[in-house]
Nucleic acid binder design. Sequence first.
DNA 1: TCTGGGGTCCTAGGACCC
DNA 2: TCTGGGGTCCTAGGACCC
Length: 424
Amino acid sequence: MGEAGGATILHADLDAFYASVEQLLDPSLRGKPVVVGEGVVLAASYDAKAFGVHAGMPGWRARELCPDVRFVGGHFRDYQRLGDQVIGVLRDFTPLVERISIDEAFLDVAGTEHLFGSPTEIARAIRRRVRAEVGLALSVGVARTKHLAKIASQAAKPDGLVVVEPELEFDFLQPLSIDLIWGVGPATHARLAGAGIRTIGDLAAAPGPVLKRLVGQAAGHKLGALATNLDSRRVETARRAVSIGAQHAFGRRQATADMLRSTLGYLADRVAGRLRSAGRAGRTITVRVRFTGLRSVTRSVTLSVPISTTLTLTEIATELAGSALNDHPHEREITLLAMSVSQLVDEFPLQLELSLGLDGDRRRSGSGAESARLALDRAMDSIRARFGRDSVGYATVMFSELGGVPEEFRELAEHPLESLKEPY
DNA sequence: TCTGGGGTCCTAGGACCC
DNA sequence: TCTGGGGTCCTAGGACCC
């Protein structure tokens, strides 16, 4: 019986994941400073980190710090495959696995001791297996709470294991920097440091009202709880997405109508496709336009009915982007376009029969248009599923595979369909 | 020559309803 | 009939995470 409150939570985190995969795939990169990414560092090997290179840094800066650094393009399919393989190993020990990113997960091994031994023994076994079967270094933290386990795995890196025994939690936490707390970034750090709060111990000693004044109601509450070691979050195996989005950064581009529509068409194609394959649709569409100097604005609209079709999403996003640009007439160059769909619901089959009462002036004549679009998108989805996404473009599919186009499709022809082809 | 792409959550003001 | 309080939803912006 694992006593209540035992240290049964594991946080497993692959070390320098993308860079390690590159070194695994190409032995000539092992032991060398390697960066994945181009304009920006997505991941750095430990050999590169030794020079001060880190994720998020501009590529030119990484080269400045470490002239010998090797830049490699990302093998994203391999990242996904190997990340999945590691999660598979974790699931051999317990079904209570909460994956929080491609290379990181929480486990709760309470109740599996009789099968696999103590949490510490399980952590050792997991690390051995991942090393042997996948070829990657996995750091693991073991503790009584998620917060402590996560901090422990950070302390364990590289390629280590740290166990925080319940009796020693306080001593472990007290001297650590507030930066190790999940949710403390540069802005929060600056505000807390301004008030003399630098360690988790300082934070634990700060009165509630002071924290609230410094970082706001919710964050103050959360930080206070974590610092005083009151983390009661459970390991959750299934979490549903709250939003689905996509973005594309260009260096700098003149914002022309054509360019907006083709980029947003491309993004909408991806976002709407993912919505449909998840069986979901959303009511709120948000577009973000970023100008030079990282200044960005967002525009959003909430419809009365959820949508999941590529063309409708494209149209709404294009209007929103237009409105954002109209409000900033002096910004002619943009550096990024992003869109996301939120207020998600499960898409039920009946929706095909419903008219799409888009808000106010956005209402479209012919309520069958949206269901026709959905039918078209679904047809295209299945063609893509069979022949591959890249083998076929939106317009090509529509005209080659769907002869005898119904009335509703006419209006599609009025739009610049070529904009929906892959722009690359 | 300030930089990717995917997300989550919070805040604050205004609208609207009871 | 004009002064209150509470709740929810929407929009825009920000902070943060991997």
